[in-house]
Computed example of a mutant assay.
Amino acid sequence: MKRNQLLIIAAASTCVLSGCSGREEITFPFSASDVYFVEMYRYTVPADAQTKVILETEDIEELYDSFSGKSVSPEEEESDLSGGTTTSFRFCLNDGTDYEIVYTYGGGRNGTIRFLTEEKDCVTSADIGSFWEDCDSEPAAVHESKLPGDPCGLTTKPIADTMLLPGHYVAEGYDPYLEPYLDLYADETATLTYSSVSSDKPMGEITIEDGSLILNDDMFGKKYTFVIDGEDLIFQADQSAPIPQLEENTLKDGARFVHREEE
């Protein structure tokens, strides 16, 4: 399931940049101990993006401290950063929320730094891009749909040959907050949660065949089939792996999944 972004509704004193009015220092609205892990990304062209994952507490604290106190200023005009290198960060917090930052440097004196979760754009002379080189984690290729800020706009484009947008699809007719749901991603993968009390989450690549969406569970070699009905999906139990009957909210045959914005 996609992780919800952190919503900051605190007083100005707890916000990162106090509105970016004049030169400020970066101060996060969470502590290093609140961070579960960090995903870093680097690219000039999104299709060639790489990622590093920081898991060790000591390394998380070091990255956190590297940001803290760095000076930033309001972005007074739109910067031309075409061809620049982007380094972005997703702080995955213990409460299940994310905090995202995108830094782009085009070769000038300053780079732009966007605090996506705070919806603030600023400039900085600090070399935020060097944090990538300082991280000893091994880089790995990553699909551009995973990049913070969705630089290619992939989340607004339907899955190929369908009207289905990437996003969160919830089964109708179940108790609120306990519904089965399906998360579709722009890289044409998906995760199914078929019961609110089960930790088993089939996930893998999807295929579109004869008007149906098929989720192929990579780990267990199972498949789950949904008829595509316009912008909705209808679960087909007779064409899917058996669903354990755990309690009344377990996914049932014919359940209609509708797109819903995550809260």
Rank of each mutant, 00 (worst) to 15 (best):
K70H: 04
D59L: 02
E75N: 14
E62D: 10
E61Q: 09
G69M: 02
D65F: 01
S79M: 10
S66W: 03
G83F: 04
S79A: 14
E58Y: 05
E61W: 00
G83W: 01
G84M: 09
D80E: 14
D80F: 08
E76D: 15
L81A: 13
V53S: 05
G69P: 00
S79Q: 12
L81H: 11
E78H: 09
I54S: 02
D59K: 10
K70F: 01
S71W: 14
T57L: 03
T57Y: 08
P74R: 06
E77A: 15
E61I: 00
K70R: 11
E58V: 01
E77Q: 14
E56V: 02
S73F: 11
S71L: 14
Y64T: 03
E56C: 02
K70G: 06
D80P: 05
T57F: 03
L81T: 14
L63Y: 07
V53F: 06
F67R: 01
S82E: 12
F67N: 04
D59A: 12
G84C: 10
E76P: 03
Y64I: 01
D80T: 05
S79R: 06
E58P: 01
I54H: 02
L63A: 08
G83S: 05
D65N: 14
Y64C: 00
G83A: 09
S82H: 08
E75I: 07
E76M: 13
V53G: 00
S79H: 07
S66A: 09
G84F: 09
I60K: 04
E61H: 02
I60L: 02
K52I: 05
S66L: 04
E77I: 07
P74M: 10
E78V: 07
